[in-house]
């Protein structure tokens, strides 16, 4: 049996109006397929936004994590040099520590500038010395390091302010995965829904199919009439759902860079192109599902 393949999709959609007319218009199923396709597309947009936002979050937090932790040394001015050297020595000997570097005066000034202004006389103030630690991928044992520092460098405090984010990054990654899984499920559900609708339409139009077979229509011709209708219907529904979904996202209150995760549920940059893939993808799913349903039903007839 011949059925139009996907490469034929465009030609088929451009279509043969006469072939389309042989399937009687059925108001109720039309609206159901339209509605379901729209709802599915709407949900897809949100799942997509969720995935992309979770992805951005994971990336951002991941970057910050890689940037390391710090050791802060507060000591009287005359001991500062010695303690810094001792801390550097301890750190260099610690397994899991990749690179260690004491921040220069300029760097410290730059860090403090946002809080105290550019005219801060750093040398007259007891500013603690900062040491930046870049971990190896395995990471170091922070409790062990803390104990050693306590013993050898009394003024040193290990500051791991980004560590608590690690499980959050994992969670954000999971969330991204869940989002994509949701999109796959929505796609599969769309296929199932279209298959059910197509089966119902094929069953309801048994007489139409019988008449067409009698007058010498090939299976390909009959299938195309149904496939075309369901593909176009799904495409239209999905387009409506996509537009509504985007509108809903657009209406969400936006906030700047400091935005939390919830308000970050937006598309950014080229990610805005993703939603426009939803209607054509839904149409392809409908095309394949209806084609398979038609092939199954027609193959069972004489």
């Amino acid at each position: 049996m011949r059925l139009p393949d996907v490469t034929n999709l465009r030609g088929m959609l451009a279509g043969d109006g006469a072939a389309d007319r042989v399937v009687p218009p059925a108001g109720f199923t039309v609206r159901l397929v339209l509605f379901t396709a729209a709802a599915m597309a709407f949900l897809t947009i949100f799942a997509l936004a969720l995935s992309l936002a979770a992805g951005r979050l994971a990336d951002r937090w991941g970057d910050e994590l890689a940037r390391a932790s710090t050791v802060r040394i507060s000591a009287p001015a005359d001991q500062m040099q010695a303690q810094t050297a001792a801390a550097l020595r301890v750190l260099q000997q610690t397994p899991g520590v990749g690179a260690v570097r004491a921040l220069s005066e300029e760097e410290q000034r730059a860090l403090l500038e946002p809080w105290f202004g550019p005219d801060l006389p750093l040398d007259t103030l007891p500013v603690p010395q900062l040491i930046e630690i870049i971990e190896t991928p395995e990471g170091y044992d922070s409790d062990g390091l803390r104990l050693r520092l306590q013993a050898e460098v009394p003024g040193a405090v290990l500051d791991e302010h980004t560590r608590w984010r690690k499980p959050l990054v994992t969670a954000a990654d999971r969330l991204r995965l869940l989002g994509w899984a949701a999109i796959l499920l929505i796609g599969a559900a769309t296929g199932a829904m279209v298959t059910l609708a197509a089966n119902a339409a094929l069953a309801a139009n048994a007489q139409v199919i019988a008449v067409l077979r009698l007058v010498g229509a090939t299976d390909g011709y009959i299938a195309t009439a149904f496939v075309r209708r369901f593909t176009l219907r799904t495409l239209t529904g999905a387009a409506i759902g996509t537009v509504l979904g985007l509108l809903a996202l657009w209406l969400m209150p936006a906030s700047g860079e400091t935005a939390g995760f919830l308000t970050g549920l937006q598309f950014q940059g080229w990610h805005w192109l993703w939603p426009f893939l939803v209607p054509p993808l839904a149409a392809i799913v409908a095309f394949l599902a209806t084609g398979a349903a038609a092939r199954r039903v027609l193959g069972g007839l004489t």
Binding site: M1, R213, L214, T218
Partner: peptide, 16 residues
């Protein structure tokens, strides 16, 4: 095949 039967039916008129 099914298509061959369909094509043959174009040469056979049927009145039920």
């Amino acid at each position: 095949g099914r298509d061959a039967v369909a094509l043959a039916r174009r040469r056979i008129g049927v009145v039920h």
